[in-house]
């Protein structure tokens, strides 16, 4: 099983990149949830040969919970989730976001193929996937003002880091802590989103 996953790891890298791009560019609730699930699947695939399929599966399960939290929040507060990009109007243009994302992808490719992290045991596919997710996550966290989008960006950053870190540290304690952090981030994003929407929807009881 592990050998098959390793052999097809480049597909997981492509999946991670596509999912990361969708998370930055798209704004539809369903597609965002799909992209988040795809990102967790790709990240799980890339760490499965190091951590084992079981532990990777637990990470993916945690990811599904995160996706459910995001989906439920967005479904209940659809109005509040029109993501507001930071900065000027240029950022609000989808075409501009595509340009920025493509630039980040090129930068990620350039960095990823050079093994810039220098972590022993990190495969070339792992390095590339991790770099894409970290850069796209940082981009998303800095591009948007809506709390859930910022949190999704942080989650992408953390997912990318998780791929790289798994190569050097396979302790169950760390993995458990990181899964808790993923879930905590999703809950924090959901809470902040509900708060932000509260004035428009009549307030939130304290």
């Amino acid at each position: 099983m592990s050998a098959v996953l390793t052999a097809y790891a480049p597909w997981a890298v492509a999946g991670a990149a596509v999912a990361g791009v969708m998370l930055v560019v798209l704004n539809d609730r369903r597609w965002l949830t799909v992209a988040l699930v795809a990102q967790y699947l790709a990240a799980g695939w890339l760490v499965a040969d190091v951590l084992g399929v079981g532990v990777a599966g637990a990470q993916i399960l945690g990811g599904f919970l995160v996706a459910i939290i995001v989906w439920l929040t967005r479904r209940n507060l659809e109005v509040a989730h029109q993501a507001v990009p930071r900065g000027n109007d240029l950022m609000a243009l989808r075409s501009f976001r595509w340009v920025v994302v493509l630039l980040v992808l090129f930068a990620g490719w350039g960095l990823g193929v050079r093994d810039w992290m220098g972590l022993p045991g990190l495969t070339s596919s792992g390095a590339l996937g991790a770099t894409f997710l970290m850069l796209l996550g940082l981009l998303q966290a800095s591009l948007y003002r809506a709390p859930m989008r910022v949190v999704i960006g942080i989650i992408s950053l953390l997912s990318g880091f998780g791929i790289a870190y798994a190569a050097v540290e396979s302790s169950l304690a760390v993995i458990a802590l990181l899964i808790i952090v993923h879930l905590g981030l999703a809950l924090a994003g959901s809470y902040l989103t509900i708060l932000q929407a509260a004035p428009a929807e009549g307030g939130v009881e304290g």
Binding site: A141, R145, P147, V150, A188, L195
Partner: peptide, 9 residues
């Protein structure tokens, strides 16, 4: 909200 986002990041 902004303070929270930045704290988390």
């Amino acid at each position: 909200i902004r303070g929270s986002e930045r704290l988390l990041l």
